[in-house]
C-alpha cells in the first residue's frame, strides 16, 4: 500500500501509484478461496466418504504447522492467519487420490509449504504453485499409492477403479458425460465433481477474486486444441468436452492456474499462460505416457511466468517501441 504524505501548505494528499486497487485484501481473497472450495469438499465426502475429511485435516494441519515453524525459525512474523497455508493444504488434499495414506499426505504437505513456498521467502515470492509442487513430489516418490483410485460410493469393501482418462487412454472407453459432470467417477477426491468445482469457481470469478482470463483461455484452448485432434480422428482421440470435464482440468483451471502469485500479471500474459497450459495438457493427455497432466502442464507454465511478465510489460505512456 502506498504511503500517504500530507503537504502542510496545500492540504493535498500525495500518494504514489497504484491508485486503483483491488477491493479484496490478500486475507479476504484467501478466505474467499477457502469458501469457494466448500462445494468440492462436500463432493469429496459424498462420493468417497468421511475419511477424506481426515486427509484434509492432516494436510491443512501440517501445511499450517510447517509454515508457522519456518516463520518462527526465521524470526519472521507468523503469517498463518492470511489463509494461504490453509489453501495450500486444502488444495493438496483435494487433488490426492481417495483414501490416501495419511503419513504420505503429511510429507506432501510439508514439501508443498517448505520447498514450494517458504524456501522462496513465503507468500508472494513462490515461483511454482505450492500444492502442485507437493503433489508432483508425491507422484515421483510414491507412484503406486498416487495412482490407486478407489471407486466412489463403495459400501463395505473399497474397490479400485480406473479414472475416465486412463480408461480412455489404455482401453478407449469413454465415460458417460453426465457422470463426469456430477462426479460419480474415479479420480482425485475434489476433482471428480465438475459441478461442485464450477460452483466454487464461478463464485470466485463473480466476486472478482480471481481473474477470468486464465480459466477462460484454458477452456477455450482445450476445446480448440482437443477439437483439432478430435476432428482429425474421432475414434482415436476423445472429444473436447470429455477433455473439459475429465480429470483435474476444471479444478486446475479455476483453483490452481489462477493462483495470483504464480500466474502472469498482464491480461495478455494471462491469455498466453492459459493457452500454453491447455496446449501442453492436450499433448500430454493424447501422446504422453501418463493419462493426466494438468499438474505438470501448470507447473511447466509456472516456470514461464517470469519470462511472460518480462516480455508483456505494459508500455509507459508515450514510450516508443524499438
Amino acid at each position: 500500500m502506498a504511503a500517504t504524505t500530507t503537504n502542510p501548505t496545500y492540504k493535498l494528499d500525495l500518494t504514489s501509484s497504484p491508485h486503483v486497487h483491488s477491493r479484496w485484501s490478500t486475507k479476504q481473497a484467501m478466505w474467499m478461496v477457502v469458501f469457494a472450495l466448500i462445494p468440492s469438499i462436500i463432493s469429496a465426502v459424498v462420493f468417497f466418504g468421511f475419511y477424506q475429511l481426515l486427509i484434509i485435516a492432516v494436510s491443512v494441519g501440517f501445511a499450517v504447522g510447517t509454515e508457522a515453524a519456518i516463520k518462527a525459525i526465521r524470526k519472521r512474523p507468523i503469517t498463518i492467519m492470511d489463509g494461504s497455508g490453509i489453501i495450500t493444504g486444502l488444495l493438496l488434499a483435494l487433488i490426492l487420490p481417495p483414501n490416501f495414506n495419511l503419513a504420505f499426505t503429511a510429507i506432501g504437505s510439508v514439501v508443498a509449504i517448505g520447498i514450494g513456498k517458504e524456501i522462496f521467502g513465503g507468500l508472494g515470492y513462490n515461483i511454482f504453485n505450492p500444492a502442485l509442487v507437493g503433489r508432483a513430489f508425491l507422484q515421483a516418490s510414491f507412484p503406486v499409492p498416487m495412482t490407486t483410485w478407489t471407486a466412489p460410493n463403495y459400501t463395505v469393501d473399497a474397490v479400485t477403479t480406473a479414472t475416465p482418462l486412463s480408461a480412455f487412454k489404455f482401453d478407449k472407453v469413454a465415460a458417460d458425460l453426465s457422470d463426469l459432470f456430477i462426479g460419480n467417477i474415479g479420480g482425485s477426491t475434489g476433482e471428480t465433481s465438475s459441478i461442485a468445482v464450477l460452483i466454487g469457481g464461478i463464485v470466485l470469478i463473480g466476486a472478482g477474486v480471481v481473474n477470468w482470463r486464465v480459466p477462460v483461455s484454458m477452456i477455450a484452448g482445450i476445446l480448440v486444441f482437443g477439437g483439432i485432434f478430435y476432428f482429425i480422428d474421432p475414434a482415436a482421440y476423445p472429444n473436447p468436452v470429455f477433455h473439459l470435464f475429465a480429470g483435474g482440468f476444471l479444478f486446475g483451471a479455476l483453483f490452481m492456474a489462477t493462483d495470483w502469485v504464480t500466474s502472469p500479471l498482464t491480461s495478455k500474459g494471462m491469455i498466453i499462460y492459459g493457452l500454453g497450459i491447455a496446449l501442453v495438457l492436450v499433448i500430454i493427455r493424447l501422446f504422453g505416457g501418463l493419462p493426466e497432466g494438468v499438474m505438470y502442464a501448470i507447473l511447466f507454465m509456472n516456470s514461464f511466468v517470469p519470462l511472460i511478465n518480462r516480455y508483456n510489460r505494459p508500455r509507459v505512456f508515450g514510450e516508443v517501441t524499438k
Partner: peptide, 18 residues
C-alpha cells in the same frame, strides 16, 4: 538447484511422450 529440481519434476510430465 532446488528450482532445477522442481523444474525437473515438472518436466517428468513429458515422460513417455516420445
Amino acid at each position: 538447484l532446488l528450482v532445477a529440481g522442481i523444474l525437473a519434476l515438472a518436466f517428468m510430465g513429458f515422460a513417455g511422450l516420445i
